[in-house]
Amino acid sequence: METFAYPQFPSDVSSVHIGLFKNVTNAAQLKQRLISAATMPGPEGEQERAAVNFAFIDARLICSLVHLQTAIYQAILAHAQGALRTRTVHSEVLWALSPSTNITDAIRRYGVSDTTESLILVRIGAQGGTSVETQMASIVKGDLSSLESLPDIADWTLIRKYHKITAPDSKKSVTDADLEKSRALVVSLVAAKGVLS
């Protein structure tokens, strides 16, 4: 897990923890847990919601760390300006990642699904959360990995489809330059989402 500090944001959202899990085996169960936590009543519900208080992101759709960070940044910015389009800053990250303005769409596509094998957990909160990593590990069954492997997990067929990026000529092999350009475009699309359309 890695932690990033954004001192310019209000203290309750100035710290970002990102954990990447590979070989996740409990995705379906995790998804169910999220759904039930949302409606669970009483103090038990509070506790459960706190336990799963993360943004859960399908890592196949993230092409670089900068891509993810861009979405996180725009989400925190919206939060700081009182301009969230979704209920929480965590769901806002999913919204920012998705090309669609529909939040249900965003969660369905970018969130955890029954078959997710590589999963990213993001916690946006106050500084000094040393227990965050433990908390992540306690709910996800998988191997905590380095964020540097994000580009290798990326599923470009899916990313191109969602962002409507024309695939490079199938006859030619995809060059590094092509990939670099596609990554840059995806980052732009996420950063500018609020002002596109």
């Binding site: 910015l77 732009s188 950063a191 500018a192």
Partner: peptide, 9 residues
Amino acid sequence: PSVRMVDAS
């Protein structure tokens, strides 16, 4: 250059 951040207001 790609867009990295937007704060229109």
